[in-house]
Write a protein that binds this DNA or RNA. Structure first.
Lengths: 208, 208, 208, 208
DNA sequence: GATGAATGAGCCTTCATTCAT
DNA sequence: AATGAATGAAGGCTCATTCAT
């Protein structure tokens, strides 16, 4: 009794190999042979589980999307719990978490890969965005709206405010690391950048 | 009298074809044959002007870098003239210009292409970043420092402040358009986002 | 149960095709496409068994070298048995064998090919020489030394004497056939040339 | 008043460049571009003087043939003068000259090149042979015939005798150097080999 | 299900040759 | 006569995909 569905162990083994190869080479430069070698299966087996190179790539993005979605569920929890806690410490934690995520080598590679493939696979890029940045932004905007309703923040456009906060955290990292191939920020720099983001955000939208 | 130097017309013709192909396919997926077809020269001619596919790609980045540098010279002028003008209108103009640049299809494709190739050509990605985002950030930080000295702004860390302003303008666009393959923002959305960026920036660093 | 080692049937099939093409065109003028066609395999299969055109060429030389080595083992046996037989008939047989070998079309082509590639592949040419002419000369020189010790020949320099005998047999054939593209000698001419070589050799080194 | 005939200085300049390139690479691996560079003319000029790569190669062989012919005219003179001199010293001189010629790098390369191209250009190889080895052999055979007639040598088959003498000199050198890529013989080895050739030749065909 | 040998289209690059100047 | 830019046909090699075992 075996299965080649999404739960198969071999399927995961292949996806792991594919992730390593696709992340470091991008879609076009990755070769099925190297993926097979990396996943320690034969080339033929690849095609037992995935119809084509594109399908394998797509499955990888979908998987990454799912992992991101699951991780972001904890954001929901945190946001819900944060309703009654102090705003500043919570935002600082949020900012720090975002930046730490954005400096991780795997995240950098993933962004590079998806961006590099966005012209060829707009649908996948869109899914990746929706599950990650898009979802995160929507949740934060909703939380801001709640805080405004509760009188703890003052913001006319929660959508834009959410983007501003996220942008101040993520962009300096991804512009320098993912695009500029500069070394990732150390903890101290992250701390200072996060605090500055919170400070600026609250200067604009904080109570009073 | 002909020349195969950087001024040659045929060289430009090739670079134009290469830009179209590289921008829409990325480095690895672009083929020299398609570039030749697009540039309306023979495949052999490609190699008269460029030693290899990599060299052609590199020349393209260098050219884009140079164009960006030249365009940013006007930023210098504007920043200098802006010393005595009102801060808010100037920042609004800056924000609008940034966002309009970031929604241009060619810019989107260029960022996607350079990001997708950053793993293989870190040096080129770095050059591209240095000439564009890096240079722009440095100029803005210097300007902020001057404003602080003149008492028109209050900012402890001009470096971070500059990144915040740039990020609030660029990130919402590039995250949604370049990564998320969403339609670019229209003029109205740009206006509102730009104004919000200026407003938030001045709330944090403005006089008083 | 398959194997791509030196025993694989397909490998032999490829080497056979490669031999035909390399022998008739030389290394540089041979094309992998033609070899594939001649071997009745696809171009890709060539690269499953051999890493490159050079590797395929090298394997061909090594194989030819091995065949030559094996064939020359019988020379050892003959030389050993010839110790007690009459010298003249044995030398005549040796001379005839040498000349017959040197007029064979495949041998002519092989020498042409190796010579033509000696500038680019000196190591391979050296291996080919060592296994063939070099080994044969060494064996004959050793045999002559033994005959001198036994008082059946008188030669101060067995090395030079061996070269003289071999040269009188081989050079007239290879100069005219391999270099001059003249028709190979018929049996009668071989007989006369062989007898003359033995006669001259014995006039110089024979007993008394 | 200019001429593109065989006397043109530019033609010679091209042939010189072509010789260097063809000799070191062989026909197929040589490129017209490199020849043009080596000859310090444009690629187009090559085709003003020679119809094709093959024609240039052919002209090179013809020129080498002519030079060889001219050089061999002195052999005629020497042979004529040698009629009355002692045979042994003359033959020793002849043998030494042959071997010195055969160890010259240019001669080694020329033989390799012509042999490597003999399959494709049998006519040229034939011309090269006729003007060199073939002509030399014929002259020596004629001289031997004269010596026999004069009672200074005893040989039934002057043709074979001439080949034997030439072979004992040339083959040990070309087998080891041109084929085996071994270092060329030094002067001492040439002296010993030449003397041994003369000694063996005279043992077989000398007076008495 | 898993394998890996085999395929052939396609890629980057080179090169003999042509032609307008 | 001389140039060198331009061409397009190969050439060596890779790789996604298939299929018999």
């Amino acid at each position: 009794m075996s299965e080649s569905g999404p739960e198969s162990a071999k399927r995961k083994q292949i996806l792991d190999g594919a992730r390593r190869v696709f992340l470091s080479a991008g879609f076009a430069a990755a070769s099925m042979g190297e993926i097979a070698r990396e996943a320690k299966v034969s080339k033929g087996t690849l095609y037992v589980y995935f119809d084509s190179k594109e399908a394998l790539f797509g499955a990888l993005i979908v998987e990454a999307k799912r992992e991101t979605s699951e991780r972001l569920l904890s954001l929901d929890t945190e946001l819900r719990e944060a309703r009654d806690s102090d705003i500043a410490p919570f935002l600082t934690m949020l900012a720090t978490g975002l930046m730490e995520k954005f400096r991780m080598p795997n995240h950098v590679s993933m962004v590079r890969m998806v961006m590099g493939a966005a012209d060829r696979f707009p649908g996948l890029a869109r899914q990746f965005y929706d599950a990650g940045a898009g979802y995160g932004h929507a949740r934060l905007a909703a939380w801001i709206t709640e805080q405004v309703a509760a009188g703890r923040l003052v913001a006319e456009d929660a959508d834009i405010a959410a983007w501003q906060f996220i942008s101040m955290c993520c962009h300096p990292v991804s512009a320098r690391v993912a695009l500029g191939t500069l070394p990732p920020p150390d903890d101290e720099r992250i701390r200072r950048t996060a605090e500055a983001a919170v400070s600026t955000f609250l200067a604009a939208y904080g109570p009073r």
